[in-house]
Structure formats: C-alpha cells, structure tokens
Amino acid sequence: MSPQQKALFLPRKQGNFELGSRSIPSPEAGQLLVKIQCAALNPVDYKIKDAGIIVTDYPAVLGTDIAGIVEEVGEGVENFRKGDRVLAHGKFGNDFTGFQQYTLTDARFTAKIPPSESFDSAATVPVGLDTAVVGLYGNDFGAGVTPPWTTSAGGHESKKPIVILGGSSSVGSYVIQLAHLSGFYPIIATASSSNEGLVRDYGATHFFDRNLSGKQLKAAIGKITDSPIGIVYDAISLPETQSVAWELLANNGTLVLTLFALVKEDEGKGRKVILTFGDAQAPQNQELCGSSWAVVEKWLSEGTIQPNKYEVLPNGLDGILGGLERLKLGQVSWNEVGCSPSGNIVNA
C-alpha cells in the first residue's frame, strides 16, 4: 500500500477546495484503518467552507459519513478484522474524515455492513442516525426518552404522540423509524406531498403537507389525537418550521432542533427547546451512541432501520464540489450527498 493517498482539502478558512495528497494514517488502540468506498455529504460541509465554522485547523479534510473496507485493525479491537465492510461516524480531524481514500475510525462508532446493504446505502446512515438518536434519547442534547434497545420490553412511549417536521429529510427519516421502535403513537410527520409515500414507508402513521400553517396543522392533529404533543422534532429548524413546532407543542413539552433556536423557552408553560448535537464523539454522547452503534448492524440486517434514499453521481472526489453546490442551492430533495474516491457519489 502506498504511504500517500489522494484527498480533497479545504486549504484555508473560507477557501476553495483543492485536490492533493497526504499520508495514510496508522490505527492506534481502539481504531480501524478503513479504505473508503463512499462518504456521504452533509449541508454542514458547505457551511464549513462558506462560513468558516467548526473547523479551526487548516488545511482541512471534511466528511464524516463513511463506508468502506477495513484495511488494518488497531490494538484491542476484537470485533472487526481486515476485509470487513463497515460504516462509521467520523470526526473532524484529518485522520478521521471521509473526503480521502483512507481514514481512521473509532471502533465504538463503527458497524459492519450486512450483505443486504451497499456501501452507498450504508454511507447515508451515520450522521443522520446519530443526530436522531441523540435528539430523542440524549439527556444533554435531547428529549431524554428511554432508548428502545435498553430493555426487551420496548414500547416505552406507547400511546404517546410525536410530531416530526421534515420527515423525508435524512435526520427526519431516522427519527420516524426510532419513534416507531420506541412505541410512539401516532407518529405524525410533515414533508412535501411528493414524499408522502416515502415518509409512510419509514413508519409515519399520519402525514401532513409541510405547507400547512401552524394553526392548520394543529387543527388537523386535533382530529387524530386529543393527547398533548410532548415532543416535536424539527429536523428542518428554519424560522417558519420552528414557529409551527412551537405552536404545536404542549405545556411542559420538548422541542428538538437541528439549528439554533429562534423561539424562546417559556417558564409559564414549562416548554423546553433543545439544540441537538449528533456528534457521537462528544463526551456527553459517547455512552449513548456507543450503545446504539452496537445494534446498528442488527438493525440494518433485519430492516429495522432503512437507510436513506440516495443518488449516485460520478467523478469521485472531484464530484464532491458539484454535490455540495447542489445542496447549497437546494437542488437535493433529501439531506445528504456523498462520494466515493473510487468514483461514486451518494446523496441521501
């Protein structure tokens, strides 16, 4: 194996991406070296470039949704071996990111890809699923719901309604599926009318068009259930969706957001606003995400969790630039786009 690899660099803050080369890292204890086959793109990738957020060390390699083949196994890793097909949630830091040919992954946040899934489909899972997991089950960055994998009984939230705004988005699709696992009912989701079938396939029991006003949506939901809406997960979190979510939320309820809050918590009604943070590597999330990653292979194998819808685009690392531009211009109807250095781009 050559000691050098191709990579797509962001050379400076708010600079333009450039192709180059860098050394292939070696795995330390608890890590894997993965030959990347596909790395999904997220909106945060173009926001890092345009706004200069999150990343502080340059030149930087981005990309945190990873699928590939295990090339080397670090000390103490017992459940993976060379040749395994895996998916992983990377982290910002050039040795652990996806826009290159090889990357290191943390074995705790890596899972085997079952034969039923491709590298492309698997790459749509990590960031979206972790953001859904943390937003629903996290105590620091989420609603604190009891995770469904913690007991064989399941159904912790039986008969409790939940509303997911943006049900066809990457994060929204996983929230729907986890809500089903947790026993929520009804599971109410919004999306564009063209995505109704997709959202219902993920497990939404009721669907409403995303263009309904807060008042209209509240009236429609009132015909389904008279139970208070204790959790609204706004996977879009734009000003208009936050306003709708806040109107739906019951006293003492929790609104989970993926972007900064524009609504304010109100002491009188006891409603909370949580900005979730789906980084599996964050200290507050490591225990929760470690336990969820332990069941990812099983979920995918059994079809309990379905990966996102995706599209394959050409030109490998070069194709990332066009994919990010499409995301920025709103030309992708899902939440992620991804690429493979060997020539595949996936958007999900």
Rank of each mutant, 00 (worst) to 15 (best):
Q4F: 12
K6Y: 03
A7Q: 07
A7M: 13
R12Y: 11
R12A: 13
K13W: 11
K13S: 13
S21H: 06
R22P: 04
I24C: 11
P27S: 15
K35A: 01
K35Y: 00
Q37G: 08
P43V: 13
V55K: 04
D57M: 01
A60T: 02
G63I: 00
A67D: 12
A67L: 10
I69L: 08
I69Q: 04
E71F: 00
E71S: 02
G74N: 09
V77L: 07
F80K: 04
R81P: 01
G83M: 01
D84L: 03
D84I: 07
V86D: 01
L87V: 11
F92M: 05
G93A: 13
D95V: 05
F96H: 15
T97S: 09
T97H: 09
Q101N: 05
Y102T: 08
T103C: 14
L104T: 07
F109P: 03
K112Q: 10
S116Y: 04
S118L: 10
D120E: 14
S121A: 13
A122I: 13
T124S: 01
L129E: 04
T131D: 11
G135T: 05
L136C: 05
A143F: 01
A143E: 10
P147W: 06
P148Q: 07
W149N: 09
T150E: 07
G155S: 12
G155M: 13
E157T: 14
P161V: 02
I162L: 06
L165A: 14
S168T: 12
S169G: 15
S173E: 06
V175N: 03
H180C: 12
L181A: 08
S182E: 00
S182F: 00
P186H: 00
S193Y: 13
G197C: 09
R200S: 10
Y202M: 04
G203C: 02
A204N: 02
H206D: 05
F207N: 09
F208E: 07
D209I: 08
D209Y: 07
R210I: 08
L212P: 13
S213I: 11
K218D: 04
G222T: 07
T225A: 05
S237V: 15
L238V: 11
P239K: 05
E240D: 06
S243N: 14
A245G: 02
W246D: 15
W246K: 15
W246L: 15
E247L: 15
A250N: 10
T254V: 06
F260W: 00
A261W: 03
L262R: 00
R271L: 07
I274F: 01
L275N: 11
L275K: 08
F277C: 08
A280I: 05
A282H: 11
P283R: 01
Q286G: 02
E287C: 10
A294V: 11
E297W: 04
W299M: 08
L300D: 10
G303I: 07
P307A: 00
K309H: 02
Y310C: 00
V312R: 08
V312M: 12
L313Y: 10
P314E: 06
L317I: 04
D318S: 11
G323F: 01
K328T: 09
G330M: 13
Q331L: 11
Q331I: 14
Q331Y: 02
S333E: 05
N335F: 02
V337G: 10
S342I: 14
